[in-house]
Design a protein around this nucleic acid. Structure first.
Lengths: 234, 234
DNA sequence: ACCTGAACACCGTTCAAGT
DNA sequence: ACCTGAACACCGTTCAAGT
């Protein structure tokens, strides 16, 4: 139980403090460990004070997601920006930002709906894609292609680790994977050294500790090259 | 409180029953509404019986995710399969499967780690990508590119709706979006009719009720075209 | 405006006991 | 093996009251 000084002895809490303390707690212990009560303790305050600033837990988590997204430093867009280079730089920046807060990423994945702080991101992506030749409803499709690809891919990379409690389950899977039948799954069996622990759905460690750098590099190559082809086909 | 017949009067519960009842409950009411106790009620059983079959809640959710993934009907792979067509068909099948159970998808997104039932998927994707010209560590990268793209994109499309409780918040965002400054965000403002409610991060409805069909079509075009370019560059 | 303090309904999980 | 029954520690949230 944290020490709790009386309200008069310190400046009043702000919403921004609540949100960044929540993010710090999530970064440290994961999102499942975040509790309105524990957060209040960290802030030296009663749980109801958190409610006053944050509304409720869902709203607090949404605010944390927005705070993280706001940390994203977009590459500048100017006249003559190379759209392919810009998309590569944006993808790198997005990945760096999400890797800095991997524990909140699964929550962000479930909240990709309505994010006010995304306006600059939206505007930049649209501007750049227009120079690639997309317009009208195809501009929206291209935007969704890019955003869904970049963020969705990183969400997958950063999906949560199995908990410690699943240690034996993980071990069992590992064994089952290494004894994959060369007759039923020959290509898998032949490529095990490259795949095990490195391929999506065949890993037991999150991308936060085992980043998939070369795969992400190829994914971005594919995105940019594919966009170029599709833009030309208009 | 559901009627609860005594244990002797009905056949014993199975793990499969527990898992599919959990999925049915999630499909109906969402994942937040699923409670070990409510699930037990649906099954006409005490909560501890659920624990006997499913271990704990995290394991139950993992089992539900695996069950959904097992529903995925992969297109057949044979000699002479066109890799581009196969990837398109697989992407469509994956999307259909996830759209059939949108409420569990955010959980799947956070669990994309270790999924035994994914072996056939892995084997098929690897086989097909080899015919496209990928080998060794680049085969793993190409696999991650495809899986991360297809599933990640759909995760984004199916991210959860804001709850009813956020109705006024949603309304406020909608208003803010429609009054987006043409000077600060000109391209956004000019394309609002296409974007509002249809672009990732600018929507207030999930892809389960408002599917992003044309965007997904373009995304798949981009993926396949980009893979072809990158494969050639080897 | 901002916070304390107490309370309510509910939840995941465990343990002992039954059959 | 499979389930009942009771219990524990904890949680999100609300409401009234203080300053």
């Amino acid at each position: 139980m944290a020490e709790r000084r009386s309200a008069q002895q310190r400046p009043p809490l702000t919403r921004a403090q609540v949100v960044s303390e929540a993010l710090a707690a999530i970064d440290a212990d994961g999102v499942d460990a975040l509790t309105m009560r524990k957060l209040a303790d960290r802030l030296g305050v009663y749980p109801t004070a958190v409610y006053w600033h944050a509304g409720n837990k869902a709203a607090l988590l949404a605010a944390v997601c927005e705070h993280v997204l706001a940390e994203l430093e977009l590459p500048p867009v100017h006249d003559g920006t190379d759209w392919q280079e810009w998309i590569r730089a944006m993808a790198r920046a997005a990945r760096a930002t999400l890797h800095a807060h991997p524990n909140i990423v699964p929550v962000m994945g479930g909240q990709m709906q309505v994010v006010p702080s995304s306006f600059p991101l939206v505007e930049s992506v649209l501007t750049v894609l227009r120079t690639a030749g997309f317009e009208g409803s195809r501009l929206t499709d291209a935007y969704n292609t890019v955003i869904g690809f970049v963020f969705g891919w990183i969400f997958g990379e950063l999906s949560a680790e199995p908990t410690d409690a699943d240690a034996d389950w993980t071990e069992a899977f590992r064994r089952r994977l290494y004894s994959a039948s060369p007759s039923a799954t020959p290509v898998l069996a032949a490529n095990l050294p490259h795949l095990a622990g490195q391929a999506l759905m065949l890993r037991w460690e999150s991308g936060s500790t085992h980043p998939l750098d070369s795969s992400f590099a190829m994914a971005v190559d594919v995105l940019v090259a594919g966009l170029a082809v599709v833009a030309r086909a208009t």
